[in-house]
Write a protein that binds this DNA or RNA. Structure first.
Length: 490
RNA sequence: GGCCCCAUCGUCUAGCCCGGCCUAGGACACCAGGUUUUCAUCCUGGCGACAGGGGUUCAAAUCCCCUUGGGGUCACCA
């Protein structure tokens, strides 16, 4: 067990980077970083039907964005290149030929039709579904003859009776009765090897020492261990991570929420918040500290400390954590981070924002405690960019405004009172004090003015100081929105 | 259904491996109160769990067994 520490993350480019995959990558990466190992990225593109270059690019980009850098991989190369599984097919075929020659693998001429029928029959008889071994004992010469004659065949692994054991650093030592492991297909009839086969070939060639992956792979592991034994290789140390679950307690899927890392980036979760939250799925620093950086994670992470039970992906806690990170950002930094989201929303242009950067900084600084993602700033600040007649009045704001029977009269009087006082621009402090006095003089309660006023100006039920908002909007806009509100709040 | 995995507050978890310090700690959410022009932030307090049953032991959340519940997997996908 003194071989060099080498870990890998091996995504298949058949879709976006799954948030659970990101956690798997993070744990492998952290382990490698903590113990001075190498972190290898390998692309499992052996499913030509579903693999695409775009997905591959997006996955690499996503990992890089998270800061999970790899020492060897498809773009950076390395001593075990190539790092695309498809390009290693020559090696896979060598391994397969070797196993066939040694009788560890055998040709199976069963057609898909027969296999389907077999599965149906087994289900009807309520037997366990597994290959029945019809071609297992075909004479080698006959099998070779039929193959030469052009009959199509797959290569199956001949599982011998016994027990297969392996070390799992998360679950403890595992053992499976080989009776439960069927003679599985190693190489398809089109000559392409299957996942369980190539993953071992590549892990052997790349000298991978530790394999940490999702629990869904647990039952594949005996097949793979058997393969290591057939190759005369020591299997890696395994660690099967608990699954990340949806609110339905099933494996996280699109049914119950966003599953792709990209979805969370698009919503404007800060990078560090995502990383932090991922750390908390199945692992805890000390049971007390919730907020910590990836540096600290690397310093303390051990695969043995990972929990066994699956965890429900709690978006509420994620949002809270995200908000914590946002509140720790300086206005300047936060403004930069929010900018693209306002632009993406079509509220303004980057140039437009930069042209009044100090104004934007003030808005961001004031809204900071109300947003949990960068994207939420776009929701909260939309009123600042909306045409005066099209400010969205939200239901709760409208309800609050309409509570006051005298709202129109109050607003009309206030508008006329306000007009001369903002003629030279809005002085927040002065208007604020004068307005409070005005409300008191009229014997009103504060909300009687503030609620309709806030609705008129922002369309929102809550927000930063109203008089700051007035200054951001500017006197002409404020007056116009009040005039319009006289009709819209009727 | 077979096989496999899992089981502490609604949720994420600490404690479990090496039984006593646990009248089970923290966080999110929720509820109440305080601050505030509102919302939010912030502060204070509250609600809230060892799935059930048997053992072992002076002592069990911690060890063992069973039951129950949940999940994963049963492809010529990965």
């Amino acid at each position: 067990m003194t071989r060099p520490l080498r870990l890998r993350f091996a995504p298949s480019p058949t879709g976006k980077l799954h948030i659970g995959g990101a956690r798997t990558a993070l744990f492998n990466w952290a382990y490698a970083r903590r113990y001075g190992g190498r972190f290898v990225l390998r692309i499992e593109d052996t499913d030509p039907e579903r693999s695409t270059k775009e997905h591959e690019r997006a996955i690499l980009e996503g990992l890089a964005w998270l800061g999970l850098d790899w020492d060897e991989g498809p773009d950076v190369g390395g001593p075990h290149a190539p790092y695309h599984q498809m390009q290693r097919i020559g090696r896979h075929k060598e391994y397969a030929a070797d196993l066939l020659a040694r009788g560890i693998a055998y040709r199976c001429f069963c057609t898909r039709e027969r296999l389907e029928e077999l599965a149906r029959a087994q289900e009807a008889a309520r037997e366990k579904s597994a290959y029945d071994g019809r071609c297992r004992d075909l004479a080698a010469e006959e099998a070779a003859r039929r193959a030469t004659a052009g009959e199509s065949f797959t290569l199956r692994f001949r599982v011998q009776p016994g027990t297969t054991r392996f070390a799992d650093r998360v679950r403890g030592d595992m053992s499976f009765d080989n009776k439960e492991v069927e003679d599985w297909v190693m190489v398809r009839s089109d000559g392409n090897p299957t996942y369980n086969f190539v993953v071992v070939c590549d892990d052997v060639d790349m000298q991978i020492s530790h394999v940490f992956r999702g629990e869904e792979h647990l039952v594949n592991t005996p097949k793979q261990v058997l393969l290591y034994q057939a190759f005369g290789q020591e299997p890696p140390v395994f660690g099967h991570l608990p699954l990340m679950l949806g609110t339905d307690k099933k494996k996280l899927s699109k049914r119950t929420g966003d599953t792709a890392l990209q979805d969370y980036r698009d919503r404007g979760f800060p990078r560090r918040a995502i990383l932090n939250f991922l750390c908390l799925q199945g692992w805890a620093l000390d049971g007390q500290t919730e907020i910590f950086g990836v540096e600290e994670f690397v310093q303390h992470f051990d695969i043995a400390d990972v929990g066994k039970a699956g965890s429900i992906f709690d978006i509420e806690k994620f949002l809270w954590l995200s908000g914590e990170y946002i509140r720790r950002e300086a206005p300047e930094e936060l403004a930069e981070n929010c900018l693209p989201f306002l632009v993406a929303r079509g509220l303004t242009s980057e140039a437009g924002l930069r042209a009044r950067w100090s104004w934007f900084l003030e808005v961001v600084g004031a809204e900071r405690e109300r947003i949990r993602t960068y994207g939420e700033l776009a929701d909260r600040a939309a009123y600042l960019f909306a045409p005066d007649a099209a400010v969205a009045y939200h239901d709760d704001a409208l309800a609050a405004a309409r509570k006051h029977a005298q709202r129109l009269e109050t607003l009309r009087d206030y508008l006329e009172w306000l007009r001369p006082r903002v003629a030279g621009g809005v002085d927040s402090a002065a208007v604020r004090d004068a307005t409070k006095a005005w409300v008191a003089d009229r014997g009103l309660k504060m909300p009687a003015l503030f609620q309709p006023l806030r609705c008129a100006l922002t369309g929102l039920a809550g927000g930063p100081d109203l008089f700051d908002a007035m200054r951001w909007l500017g006197a002409p806009v404020v007056l116009r929105r009040l005039e319009i509100a006289l009709e819209r709040l009727a």
